[in-house]
Computed example of a mutant assay.
Amino acid sequence: MKLELSPEQQQLVDTVRKVRQREIAPRALQSIGGEFPHDNIKALASVGVMGMAIPERFGGSDASILDTVLALEEIAKSCYITAEAVIGEIGVQSRIISTYAPEHLQAKYLPRIASGEGVLSICMTEPDAGTDVASFRTNSRIEGHEVVINGAKTLISRAQLADVLIVFTRVNGIAGAAGIGCVLVPGGTPGLQAKATYRTMGGDHLCDVTFDECRVPLDHLILQQDSMKTLINAFNAQRCLNSAMCLGMAEGALEESIRYLRDRKAFGQRIGDFQGLRWKAADMYIEIEAARGLLYRAAASADPFPDPLITAAAKTYCNEMAIRVTNTAVQIHGGYGFTDEFAVSRLYRGARFGSLGGGTTETLRNYVGRHLVDYVDLASGVGVH
């Protein structure tokens, strides 16, 4: 088994790294003001990143989940805000549209995403339900050739800017998981309101979104009731990208720490010459490489979406690893690490998001544990098959 990048994948990483170092890193400090990073998105679109989840006929490259992970990992080394904006365009949002929406809606929205001009927003969390999707109250009723949406979503990224919102909703009031579907709601639809209400510790803004008799054409209901399994399978790609962000932020924190260990002097020598700090760097590296192995394996399993078990394990580990590694980086930097001017402070705050979005680590641990106890065939064991 050869565990190394192909020449094409290495070229991808090198290309994204150049954009990150030239365009994204110099603007990283100003990005925590909460403004959408349009300039960074345009720069990434110019090298094809924004089209990675989009079919070639709509201006994309239809890249693999693993290639998308590699690009997002590199971006996240310098800027959580930009990485979060990118995942909102090349994650499950674009893949849901390209997989399930009718051709004319794909043609309307996907080329704008690939060019860096469009913005997507996925609406899942509700005031009284987050991970518990089957308890959503937002409802879409079918009236002739229209769908009428009523309800509320909260903690939604980019909703005030979006060309179209991908809304997880109950259909015709059918209760439980069987009633959940997905509808596309164009930005500016009468009855739709999106307000940037919450400022996050990562620096971005999240919205409250309400739907009051919003009417869209029937063909905007791209997945009807009893589509829960389909939606969750699609969401495993998003979990890999969330993990890629966490891996990238941890790598960025380690790189910043190595630089500081080499440059900072104390008691007449580099602080990197003290064994205690060298061990911190060693532990950071070990955790990063363990996370990389889990994540790349999960991403490589995609056909077309990643295996849910290894993806749940990868996301759980990457999320928690990033918190530990970025926290250690802040400690290595001492008082400077507590200031916004040093990247490790921003990376630490960004890493805290990972275990909250895309399925909490508690939920994913429960899934992994249930699978092991209820489904593992002990005749073949738990190794690679």
Rank of each mutant, 00 (worst) to 15 (best):
M228F: 10
Q331A: 14
F211V: 04
R112N: 05
G176F: 04
V86D: 00
G276F: 07
H371M: 14
C207I: 11
H220S: 02
Q193T: 15
N233V: 15
S243V: 03
L105N: 13
R95G: 14
N40W: 09
K229P: 11
G176R: 13
E73D: 04
T197N: 12
G276R: 13
P217R: 01
A300R: 03
S115H: 03
P55Y: 03
M245I: 09
A300P: 04
L105R: 09
G34Q: 13
Y367Q: 06
Y285C: 10
K18S: 08
T326F: 00
F305E: 04
T316I: 12
G248N: 04
T230A: 08
V86P: 00
G293T: 05
I97F: 07
G350M: 05
V86H: 01
A159P: 00
C207Y: 01
G203H: 08
Q224C: 08
S135G: 01
G369T: 09
I142R: 08
R57C: 09
V86Y: 01
G33Y: 05
I122L: 08
K108T: 04
T361M: 02
V13N: 10
A194E: 06
F267Q: 12
G144W: 04
I113Q: 08
L309R: 04
Y260P: 00
S98W: 07
C207A: 11
A329Q: 03
L364Q: 07
G116F: 00
E341Q: 13
S98A: 09
A290H: 06
G248I: 10
K195D: 13
G202N: 06
V119K: 06
N233E: 15
D212G: 12
S345G: 13
D62P: 11
L356P: 14
R264P: 08
L261F: 00
K315S: 02
Q9K: 11
T68S: 11
N242Q: 05
T311Q: 00
V92N: 12
V92I: 15
K229R: 08
F274E: 02
V209M: 06
P127H: 01
F58M: 15
M201Y: 11
R239D: 11
A107N: 14
S61D: 02
S140Q: 09
A43G: 11
H220A: 07
V167F: 05
I122W: 12
L241I: 14
T210D: 10
A351Q: 09
H145E: 13
D14V: 10
V384M: 14
F353P: 06
A196K: 07
I75F: 04
G358W: 07
E74N: 05
Y375W: 14
V69N: 05
A53N: 04
V384L: 15
T316N: 14
